[in-house]
Design a protein around this nucleic acid. Sequence first.
DNA 1: CCTACCGATCGGTAGG
DNA 2: CCTACCGATCGGTAGG
Lengths: 193, 193
Amino acid sequence: MIEVERKNTRKEQVIQTATELFKDKGYAATSMRDLANELGIEAASLYYHIKSKEEILQSICFEMADAFIQGLDDVEHRDISNREKLYQGIINHTKVIARDLPAAAVFLNEYRYLSAPWLKKFLRLRINYINRFKKIIEDGIKEGEFKNVNKKLAVMTIFSSLNWMPNWYNPKGKIDPEAVSKQLAQLLINGLG
Amino acid sequence: MIEVERKNTRKEQVIQTATELFKDKGYAATSMRDLANELGIEAASLYYHIKSKEEILQSICFEMADAFIQGLDDVEHRDISNREKLYQGIINHTKVIARDLPAAAVFLNEYRYLSAPWLKKFLRLRINYINRFKKIIEDGIKEGEFKNVNKKLAVMTIFSSLNWMPNWYNPKGKIDPEAVSKQLAQLLINGLG
DNA sequence: CCTACCGATCGGTAGG
DNA sequence: CCTACCGATCGGTAGG
């Protein structure tokens, strides 16, 4: 039992270290020797913990995907206005990113190195998630809660803003994630002008 | 003379093909053999046209940087309101992206593979460019043209939206780049609500 | 632009 | 988790 526990946490350690390397250097440019070195072990020893380099990427990408989807599930069927749904959806999305910035960066930038069946599966999840946000905007336009803007453009603008966060947000800075979420949601819905 | 001309266009061909590969597969995951293959020549032959793999990345990144900076130069000192400056600056930025989407994608996502002196130079140019936009927003807030929002957040939101374009914009679709620019600028300044 | 080739490094396996 | 190692591939050079 203790054996199993130790194995699990060590595996998580491997994945977490890999996440940071993938974020910093990119998946393709990170070697298993880089990873082993960071952990203070030999490259061959990594294969006691994981099956392959790509298995690490898979677990990062799909665990993040789950978290995003769950965040949307939480607000989608509440009895609130579409404007409020969008606002809360944005906040949940931002929170998932802020909770683990390196993993979010890998999820956003490195997913393309997923191979054959995984990449398709990943893209299917992503398009689905985006379409659910689009639906909220669509409904909101119908109800007169939003201006009659280009829906694709609106949803892309929202996601791009949210997904850029790992590139500039400093978790040790003065703004806490909660405040960033709110300000970002405000800015996107109400504009700058 | 004809010799020289032919050499130049062939080099441009190499760079353009590389740009598309770097965009699709990432810089690190694109091999010189991939590139040679796409061009129908041997890998070793590439070195008649270019000095190194990184030289290609450098020319893509710095040519794009020049284009962005020039677009901002064009509007910065005009005698117009800050709101109008921001609007026109966004449009110019979008136009540079739309003019060459693959090069824009490489500029945005692959610059980090630039080595020692180049990466620093690149980052210096980028921070400078961003700060000039920040200044416009700052001035606009002082003049009461914009709400008193978080400046860093505002400028990051704008760039993220613009820079996400290569990920979704289809140049063969129904919206032309001019219209996208305008809609995007509108949306960012006036909001969705 | 090609042939022939180099040293370095890659992800991963066998066997302990 | 280690030693010892593998075949494949990498960016690039020499010489034509």
